[in-house]
Design a protein around this nucleic acid. Structure first.
Ligand code: NAD
Ligand code: NAD
Lengths: 228, 228
DNA sequence: CTAACATTGTTAAACTTTTAACAAAAAGGC
DNA sequence: GCCTTTTTGTTAAAAGTTTAACAATGTTAG
């Protein structure tokens, strides 16, 4: 039937050119929709169909993918399994990533429990807290250690990402300690802007900020409704 | 000493022009830094000082504020309390906003507990769940009702925002029910893109997506390091 | 095997956002 | 009170992002 010429994943990357942040932020969305399609056993999809589902233009989708290579075929579209695989690779979801979490409070426990991460190669290996009542607990099969053991633990385990779910007041100190131990990626939920060296990457999750954005948009709607 | 002419908050808004989303998203950040300064009893700040703290350009800060009015004074800067007040007003943080939360699981409980929201005028009035073991509980002084009572409750209470922390599989159905009851704002934590009418605003919190972005950035760094 | 069709990857134009520059105006020192 | 300094709000230029257009190329049906 169809045989597909398939030079596959051209090393067509515009190397040495920085991939725009706007593009990077859309990749997880593509990943999610492709996972859905894959699960529904859809074998192929065109840029226009996928873009319509996501709510963007086909142009943007193709432009975004072209930063990384050529994964589709003219007249046919993309194979879902193949494209999902490529996007996963680009996102770094194929390697196992070791994480530690600091601050076993409500939010910390929710995140540890969130199984989706594990499926995608993110493994929380240890939890740290400074509350003696919590230290020693096992949460979702992961032990909670005293925060004083952080440095020791990191010396002897391969950990790529530190997750901070302590109160805001402790977050900078925790970040400093992680950085001193050589951690290069921090996933921060405390509402403070962490100061870290340039070679450390911080992703800040702005839970509270998005509620304010919602509140503001609601208000704008109300104003518009009343004054025109 | 200084007396300040003070025509204050000019109704200078470029009305009928849509405020860029990029601007809206920065306002909560300004709010946070201004709150900090206010707490530290700093009385005045210039655009360049504040921008430096935040990590943006002074130009951008002034440009952003100019969408809403003129709040500063040449040769002096901004009064922290005044600007904080203005930003809060713009964000709609001065009115009381009633919320209901659906899905009293781990994440839901963390969010209910998160006191910062209450301080900013967001009040969770009721919780709904479909698990009979949870219905009847009181979480942080807020009662958990059976999900079947949702419509009844919303008929008789003034609620502006619905928070969805159910599993992804239930999220669309919950959203539909909220919309049918006239809710215009949805704060969604489930990893699905909710379909709602145009007059309903959904803010989607992408917790998982930001971890993927972190993972990708880490990988990019690694690649860069190895190939040049 | 051929021709009509579908759909990509890419180039170029349009649009949006950010940064720079500066005149206008108030502050603060002398 | 006058002069120098500071700093705003705004206008203009630069940079970045999105959308449109289309040639190239593989697909599919006859
Ligand atoms: N809960 C939410 O929905 C939510 C939303 C947005 C942001 N946040 C932020 O996430 C963080 C955690 O929130 P939470 O609701 O889970 O709070 P929490 O109080 O339930 O948990 C904090 C945990 O950190 C531990 N801790 C405190 N200081 C520590 C230290 N120096 N070292 C190690 N552990 C320490 C505490 O013992 C506790 O277990 C806070 O910064 C909060 O502002 C939470
Ligand atoms: N936990 C996290 O860190 C995290 C991170 C990102 C996204 N999320 C998303 O947030 C949501 C909640 O996650 P969680 O970890 O709290 O899960 P959870 O299983 O702990 O909680 C879900 C709650 O929803 C209730 N529920 C289920 N179906 C319902 C229905 N039809 N009506 C009303 N209530 C219903 C359940 O009884 C349960 O109490 C999920 O969609 C998850 O994907 C969670």
């Amino acid at each position: 039937m169809r045989k597909m010429g398939h030079e596959s994943g051209n090393i067509n990357q515009r190397r040495h050119q920085q991939i725009p942040l706007a593009v990077i932020k859309r990749l997880p969305i593509y990943h999610r929709y492709l996972s859905d399609l894959h699960q529904k056993e859809v074998a192929r999809i065109s840029s226009s169909e996928l873009a319509a589902k996501i709510g963007i233009t086909a142009s943007q989708l193709r432009q975004d993918l072209s930063w990384f290579g050529s994964f589709g075929q003219q007249g046919y579209g993309y194979r879902v399994d193949e494209l999902l695989q490529e996007v996963s690779r680009i996102l770094g979801l194929n390697q196992n990533i070791g994480m530690v979490l600091i601050g076993a409070g409500r939010l910390g426990r929710a995140i540890i429990h969130y199984a989706n991460f594990k499926r995608r190669g993110f493994h929380t290996k240890a939890i740290f807290d400074n509350n003696p009542d919590i230290v020693g607990e096992i949460i979702d099969e992961i032990p909670v250690y005293n925060i004083s053991e952080l440095e020791n633990y990191l010396k002897s385990h391969a950990i790529q990402i530190g997750v901070i779910t302590t109160p805001a007041s402790a977050a900078q100190e925790v970040a400093d300690r992680l950085v001193r131990c050589g951690i290069k990626g921090i996933w921060n939920f405390a509402p403070v802007s962490l100061k870290v060296p340039d070679d450390v990457i911080v992703e800040h999750v702005h839970i509270g900020e998005s509620l304010m954005v919602l509140s503001m948009k609601l208000q704008q709607r109300k104003e518009q409704a009343s004054d025109d």
